[in-house]
Amino acid sequence: MKRFYLFGFLALMLFDTLAQVSFKYASLHAEPLTLDAAWLVRVFGHPWIYGAFVGYIGAFFTWMTLLKYAPVGPAFAASHLEIISVTLVSVWLFDDTLTLPKLIGGSLILAGILCLAKAETTLPAESAAPAEPSRS
């Protein structure tokens, strides 16, 4: 099951990163923003916009599958790994700078995911299940 989570969250991160990077490239190729038919032709005439659609659709189905099997707390936290991957890819592709606040934020995201995953593995099975409502 750990392998399922590993590959699932990796796929989610890759799909989310593809969507964000594709939107960035699509927006760069669609400039200037004019909100007219010519702008729509520029947006939908460039293949990056379709990469964004593939990324979002892939992320949606991957996320729904993960939610079916993974504990919600760690799953929700791990779904934010794309913030780290998009930041790193942006440094590489778009010459963004990797600042101290970005490093601290990424470290806190990773620490939060690890804490939630650790807490989830140490909880007894009965405390992880919702309690039956009392009828009084």
Rank of each mutant, 00 (worst) to 15 (best):
S127G: 01
E132Q: 15
S85G: 04
A19Q: 05
L10S: 07
G106H: 00
L88E: 08
F61S: 05
A131I: 13
F94M: 07
G106Q: 01
L88M: 08
S136F: 11
A38R: 05
A129R: 14
P32F: 13
F9P: 10
T62P: 00
W92N: 07
F76G: 04
A70S: 08
F7H: 06
W48P: 00
G105R: 03
I109M: 08
L40N: 05
L103I: 11
L14S: 01
V43N: 10
V86L: 06
T62Q: 05
S136H: 12
R135Q: 12
L114H: 13
L40W: 08
F15R: 01
A131L: 14
Y25E: 09
T121L: 09
F60L: 13
E82G: 11
V54Q: 07
R135E: 15
V54W: 04
C115T: 15
R3I: 09
F4T: 09
Y56F: 15
E82W: 14
S27K: 00
P124F: 11
F9S: 08
L116N: 08
D96N: 13
E132F: 14
A125E: 08
T122F: 14
L93A: 12
L114E: 02
L12H: 05
E82I: 14
P124E: 12
T62N: 06
Y69W: 13
S127H: 13
T87I: 12
L67Y: 13
A131E: 10
F9G: 09
V89Q: 11
P124Q: 15
Y5F: 10
L10K: 01
L103E: 00
G8M: 10
L110D: 01
A59H: 04
M1V: 04
T99G: 03
M13G: 00
V21C: 10
P47Y: 14
S90E: 03
F60I: 12
G112N: 07
M13L: 05
I104G: 02
L66I: 13
L14H: 06
D95F: 09
E120I: 05
Y25N: 06
I83P: 00
V21W: 12
S22I: 06
L110E: 03
A70E: 02
T34M: 06
V54L: 05
F4M: 09
R3V: 05
V43G: 14
T87D: 02
A117H: 12
Y50V: 06
L110F: 11
E31P: 00
L28I: 15
T87W: 09
A30Y: 03
F44K: 10
S107F: 06
A129N: 01
